[in-house]
């Protein structure tokens, strides 16, 4: 059972600055001007075929049509992310919410205290830094990408058909 409720649409997205690679940071502020998709997930190295990160990795071209930047966030360290990203050939950044542990997930009401991990939470943040859409899925369920695509289409007012 999910116990957390995500931050509501219209609210300002809490700022953060997190490790992306062992020697580089990414901040939300520097991405102002384009939509940002935040994908909180419990942990690196979950089973491959059904995994949420693999699905989002495959639909990156769709996100790019909206100029959106996808960021994965979990409590794993940057070193762990590096190994996970390599293994799955990920082409988007994974941020380490590692120290202080889970701090950013907490700001987004997406931290599971009992497990010490993030929820499976998705946020779409608009170009002005406001939350456009949010969703927390039961932790065992891969939420899919449909909600994110719809939210991005809502922001740009366009539906892209292949």
């Amino acid at each position: 059972m999910s116990t957390n409720t995500p931050l509501a649409s219209g609210a300002e997205a809490p700022g953060f600055k997190l490790r992306d690679t062992p020697d580089q940071d990414v901040s939300l502020k520097e991405l102002r001007g384009r939509p940002v998709v935040l994908m909180f997930y419990p942990a690196d190295f979950s089973p491959i075929c059904g995994s949420e990160v693999s699905l989002f990795n495959e639909i990156l071209p769709e996100l790019q049509k909206h100029a959106a930047q996808l960021l994965g966030i979990s409590v794993d360290s940057a070193w762990c992310h590096l190994a996970f990203a390599r293994e799955n050939n990920l082409r988007f950044p994974l941020l380490a919410d590692f120290h202080p542990k889970g701090e950013v997930a907490r700001r987004y009401q997406s931290y599971r205290e009992s497990e010490g991990e993030a929820e499976r939470a998705l946020y779409v943040i608009d170009k002005d830094g406001l939350i456009a859409w949010s969703y927390i899925s039961p932790v065992g369920v891969n939420p899919g990408a449909e909600g994110v695509l719809k939210a991005l289409e809502g922001l740009s007012g366009k539906v892209y058909e292949d």
């Binding site: 059904g50 995994s51 699905l55 639909i59 891969n142 939420p143 899919g144 695509l149 292949d162």
Partner: peptide
């Protein structure tokens, strides 16, 4: 293939 794939994404396919 792309049409198949995107129809899956839009239908809530999240893995195989």
């Amino acid at each position: 293939v792309r049409e198949d794939f995107m129809s899956g994404v839009r239908s809530g396919v999240n893995g195989t």
